[in-house]
Design a protein around this nucleic acid. Structure first.
Lengths: 338, 338
DNA sequence: CTGTTAGCGCCTTCAT
DNA sequence: ATGAAGGCGCTAACAG
């Protein structure tokens, strides 16, 4: 592999001249420049990013750690991050913690050792709180993605989970629903907790009692499905809300298991469930997360943070759209009473 | 940030000793080692991967370029690559070409400049053939993923597309189907071409005529959908096969557009369509691609190539499972004739 | 407008 | 069992 020395020798100049035409960092006479350029082509020279990064102490790369690369929402966030990074000439280092705080810890360390210019973290569910404070102590800028904290002074990008759930609840309660089954999942995950807050907002808005509601939390999707099926079989709820893609799957299976048809027997809605909720029968009412844009926004905040390390940290929440479809439309409990 | 010099000074040893305890690369007396270890902890020293990589000319990282990070299949391959890489202590650099050969070119260059130890490429549809030969000239090992060549001496990991399609066809022709609509997409994509080959295999197996079949190729999903809807409205086909996730979406929409119900009016099958094809009504017959395993296998081949640069290139094809569901079961053309 | 030179932090051969 | 020192390829003063 040719180095700058080879180029310099062939062009009959010093390596600093080569460096400067490469980076456009000072004027060089047109004809020497062209000599250098043709020498670069002739030798097939390519910059060694490693040496360059070491010297400049800047790698032009960012790291992204997601908690579950298998979930469509995170895949799409990663997509957005990659795009926004590439647009800015940054390379993306991707790691997956698989919801495991140890793996997450290792990933953080690895990426930091690789001297990424910044780090975007969609943290695992069981991350120890002090990780964040440790992270703040690093000089590497960090942006939290999707899973936010209320009490941490870091840049964050999330969605308006609480408000979206409240809007969904307004829709459902307006149709007469009074008893809900919420398949929430891991309540340690902030986005889940936010959605639950929104749920109780909606319960209160409608003058209902929180204790009457069936809220399913836990990390074992199979157990959640069983518990939901049992609840549904008893006819305890008239509407089901699933809070993620895997839980939407679990929810639909529970409906099958309980032999209930949507929307005739029960209403069904999902948070961030499927990419094409309209293709289901019935079409699924869905709160859609702008995952791609969230990823892109995280890169934006990261860049701003790098520019201005001491600016006040910001939390950005993107709007989720509430898409109403047949799964919550055709049926309302009043039908039953009639 | 502490460096080895700081650690060495604090421990009262030379930096070479520090290096050797760090890498376990030669014996050091237990008590000096422990002095070094505690100095490392006290200083919070962390290895600088950049300097290390430069010196060893080995980055412990691999690059992955996918043609469309938005497609679930590629997201899942990326997931598999990440996992397999992390298991081996390798960091993943991810780039997305968005099916654009220029972006792909740039991504390759970028990753090569970052001196990845190896490169996995799911190439774009319109990649110039000479790119591959150029890539072969590089000393960096390359593995082709999903989109293979028959005439290139590189390691490759794909799926048994041709055979899978043939099996799907056997299933359909056994049920009496004679006229098919295949939503193929971009025929320049090798995996698509392989599936078409398998389709014609199946046509021949059943003693049918290829010219009677309706094969839709092209890059504009909207156009494909319209053309399919037109074909279906005329009742020209009794079974539809969609060759990718976006085309499965287009296909289902075309069915809606033509006001045809599956499986009563028409059979529908998809290659690599949705993650949970059983949740659709009716359940969708699907050839499922082992995307995660393909990604992992690519990392495996890459590692072997790095170990043995001169071994004979291999092409690995993973098995796709044919999942039969109601969308091709309940209806058969003989019903109509009866 | 161009060249010389000192490191960035680390690994590794060569001494001791 | 340990140290000294060269150099990986590059950028950025500092000199002319």
């Amino acid at each position: 592999m040719a180095t700058m020395v080879d180029v310099a020798r062939m062009a009959g100049v010093s390596i600093s001249t080569v460096s400067h035409v490469l980076n456009g960092t000072r004027n060089v006479e047109p004809k020497t420049r062209s000599r250098v350029v043709s020498a670069i082509e002739k030798t097939g020279y390519r910059q060694d990013t490693l040496a360059r990064a070491m010297r400049r102490s800047k790698t032009d790369s960012i790291g992204l750690i997601v908690s579950d690369a298998g979930e469509p929402a995170f895949a799409e966030m990663a997509h957005g991050v990659e795009q926004a990074a590439a647009d800015r000439g940054l390379t993306l280092l991707l790691a997956n913690s698989s919801e495991d705080s140890d793996r997450e810890q290792r990933a953080i360390r690895t990426l930091l050792e690789r001297r990424v210019d910044g780090l975007i973290l969609a943290r695992a569910a069981n991350t120890a709180p002090d990780l964040l404070t440790a992270l703040k102590a690093e000089k590497t800028p960090v942006v939290l993605l999707d899973r936010l904290y209320s009490d941490v002074s870091l840049d964050q990008v999330g969605a308006d989970n609480r408000d979206s759930m409240r809007r969904l609840m307004a829709h459902l309660t307006a149709r007469g629903h009074r008893r809900f089954a919420v398949v929430a999942g891991d309540a340690r995950v902030p986005s889940v907790a936010e959605r639950l807050d929104g749920f109780y907002d909606g319960v209160r808005d409608a003058g209902l009692v929180g204790d009457d509601q069936f809220v399913l939390t836990g990390t074992d999707d199979g157990e959640l499905r069983e518990a939901l099926a049992a609840n549904l079989t008893q006819g305890s709820s008239t509407a089901v809300i699933a809070c993620s893609t895997p839980l939407a799957v679990a929810g639909l299976r529970a409906l099958q298991q309980a032999a209930l048809a949507t929307p005739m027997d029960i209403a069904f809605a999902t948070f961030d469930g499927f990419t094409n909720p309209d293709l289901f029968s019935p079409g699924l009412t869905t709160v859609r997360q702008p995952a791609f844009d969230m990823g892109a926004a995280a890169v934006g905040l990261l860049m701003e943070r790098i520019e201005a390390p001491d600016a006040r940290p910001r939390t950005v929440r993107l709007h989720q759209s509430l898409e109403l479809r047949e799964s919550t439309e055709l049926f309302s409990p009043s039908n039953l009473r009639a």
